[in-house]
């Protein structure tokens, strides 16, 4: 079957079995390898992408469900080759170490920032609770999201 949706602002047309994972479509068919696979069963959040603004695990989404939606991945964040506020905040605070959870963390962080909730420690922890990180102890990731929220408010 053919599925049509938007990825990072570009309309795409994918010929695939409807049960093919969105994760594989992104990584293999569209060569967007920024989205990572950590567990393949929706536990780690490394494959988090935004579908119509909501954070989802791309390993659990069949491509048929992406039909007609707007998908955003980590590749969409940098603007004209420059890191956006959230990426820059991760870089400055040490929010990325090995980097494998980072794309998913960034997408969860983007959704949190877009939602406009107060960037408290508790709210940020709640927002990234579906994204596992084994390197940082989460402390600097939380700092990064709070810093980006601060800068967006100031801007």
């Amino acid at each position: 079957m053919t599925f049509r949706f938007t990825v990072n602002g570009e309309p795409v047309e994918v010929k695939a079995n409807g049960s093919r994972r969105l994760l594989d479509v992104l990584r293999e068919d569209l060569a967007l390898t920024g989205t990572k696979e950590g567990c393949g069963e929706g536990e780690c959040g490394a494959c988090s992408v935004l579908i119509d603004g909501d954070v989802v695990d791309a390993c659990l989404v069949p491509v048929s469900q992406a039909q007609g939606t707007t998908v955003r991945t980590v590749e969409a964040l940098a603007i004209d080759g420059r890191l956006n506020e959230l990426q820059q905040a991760f870089l400055e605070t040490g929010g990325a170490q090995c980097g494998i959870c980072t794309p998913g963390m960034l997408m969860a962080g983007e959704a949190f920032l877009a939602g406009g909730a107060e960037p408290t420690d508790e709210n940020i922890r709640e927002a990234i609770a579906g994204n596992l990180c084994r390197c940082t102890g989460y402390t600097k990731i939380i700092e990064a999201i709070a810093l980006a929220a601060q800068r967006r408010t100031d801007a």
């Binding site: 990584r27 390898t33 990572k36 940098a78 890191l83 990325a96 980097g99």
Partner: peptide, 21 residues
Amino acid sequence: PLRREGPEKLTGEAKYADDLV
């Protein structure tokens, strides 16, 4: 200094083994 390979990791450009074609 900022993490040397940080920008690649933050933009999804960094190539982990499964990303290599």
